[in-house]
Design a protein around this nucleic acid. Structure first.
Lengths: 156, 156
DNA sequence: TGCAAATCATCTGCTGTCAAACGATTGGTA
DNA sequence: TACCAATCGTTTGACAGCAGATGATTTGCA
């Protein structure tokens, strides 16, 4: 069985690279799926979901926010934001205070515990990014960041 | 109401650009989500799902395949591949023939109708890509493709 | 040969995401 | 004032994606 009798149509030197080269949209989606998987795994070890981390980080950066604002800025659907804030509140990392000016909205507020939890979670992010984007040099990562920025319409 | 009495914490000059610049993983996922949404919309108009299109294209390129091979090369879960092939078969675009060498697997085969349908669907792809990646110059698209290729481990 | 392990396609159940609808509240207009 | 549209948070239902189990079949090895 020198000339492989089986695997009649199996073209090693696979098809995927060709596809990824031709279809930029597919390449982007597949890469994103891999990265998202890694991020979820990392977040799982850390005990704080990706979305929850982002909410804490934004609250720390810009102060108390409505869930609406958090949704828009973090690109997380508002119906998802509900459960994200539920979890955070239950862990005592944020408080939901009614906005006296507009009682329809909350003013989601970072607690001291939340601030400490965020600081702790932040420490592992650089290593995670380093690990996930290891195939790229620092310069290439910067290129990628710029290109994605343009694609997202977030200025340069 | 010259000094806006409401919107106390609303920081226009939004937060998202900062986030996207710091967190390459988030930028990648958000960009991918936007692109995927556009692709789904395009595929909807075309009447052929993204996965179904990819299957037809691969069959045309490499000949009859098992669902397993299609799954691996297209990065589509095998349990999802089942319904993708179901749809294609029901529309008469592929046939599922048993592989006589290995009756566990199918040899999914492109029909003439499938080949014509593929040719028709292909024509609208360039315009879709042009539209979706409009913020990027051709050179930048090539850069992005190269970077994603490295990230996906598909050689240069 | 006969038997254990691996493989292919499929099915089931779980999770996360999104669209749409809903109550509560607000702002604007007559 | 009374009323209508818009907004915020929430709930619900539909749907895709993935892990794991299952049945049929094949392969490897004694």
């Amino acid at each position: 069985m020198a000339p492989t009798t089986k695997n009649p149509g199996r073209t090693r030197a696979t098809y995927f690279p060709r596809l990824a080269a031709e279809r930029l949209d597919i390449a982007l989606c597949r890469a994103s799926a891999a990265v998202a998987r890694a991020a979820d795994a990392h977040a799982g070890e850390e005990g704080l979901g990706v979305g929850q981390h982002l909410v804490l980080q934004m609250l720390d950066a810009v102060g108390p926010c409505s869930q609406q604002t958090l949704s828009e800025e973090l690109r997380i659907d508002r119906s998802v934001m509900v459960s994200v804030c539920d979890d955070l509140e239950q862990q005592g990392l944020v408080r939901r205070e009614r906005n006296p000016r507009d009682r329809r909205s909350y003013a989601v507020t970072l607690t001291d515990l939340g601030r400490r939890r965020l600081a702790q979670a932040q420490t592992s992010i650089p290593a995670f990014l380093e690990d996930t984007f290891q195939p790229l040099t620092p310069d290439e990562r910067h290129q990628l960041s710029t290109l994605l920025g343009k694609l997202l319409g977030t200025g340069t």
